[in-house]
């Protein structure tokens, strides 16, 4: 992990998921972690902090993750967004990949998956 203190945005309406992800990330490195609990707030925080990596849930209040992903890609084309969902249906996978997601992880994740992603990106 070469870059010093990267910023990671976690977008999920569940406090539990955000907590577990934060605990997991802190095991693997030193990150500035930002949290969003709705689709709309994830866009606002994305603009404000310009994170290096985003973990983005699909089913969220006020704006779903696929729409949020599309907006993020318009703001910053090379952003790495990892979709994180309990529902890895064919249509969700297709929509996420077409919209430019870097990867798709079905919940519950394994720590090794997160570690692998962090090693590849940083």
């Amino acid at each position: 992990m070469s870059k010093s203190r990267p910023t990671i945005l976690i977008c999920d309406d569940s406090l539990l998921v955000r907590k577990k992800m934060k605990d997991c990330l802190n095991e693997f490195g030193d990150f500035t972690i930002i949290e969003a609990s709705t689709g709309q707030s994830s866009i606002e925080l994305f603009r404000q902090y310009e994170p290096d990596l985003v973990f983005l849930d699909i089913v969220m209040p006020d704006k779903n993750g696929i729409d949020a992903l599309k907006e993020m890609m318009e703001i910053k084309k090379d952003v790495k967004v990892i979709m994180l969902s309990s529902s890895g249906t064919k249509s969700h996978l297709k929509a996420a990949m077409e919209a430019g997601a870097h990867d798709f992880i079905q919940k519950p994740w394994e720590k090794s998956q997160i570690e692998h992603i962090l090693r590849n990106i940083f």
Binding site: S14, V59, S85, S86, G88, Q106, K107
Partner: peptide, 18 residues
């Protein structure tokens, strides 16, 4: 606690959708 029970339902329903 609310996030936890809600997330169980979300996880279960997500697998059902898959």
């Amino acid at each position: 606690a609310q996030a936890s029970v809600g997330e169980f339902l979300n996880l279960h329903n997500g697998i059902f959708l898959v």
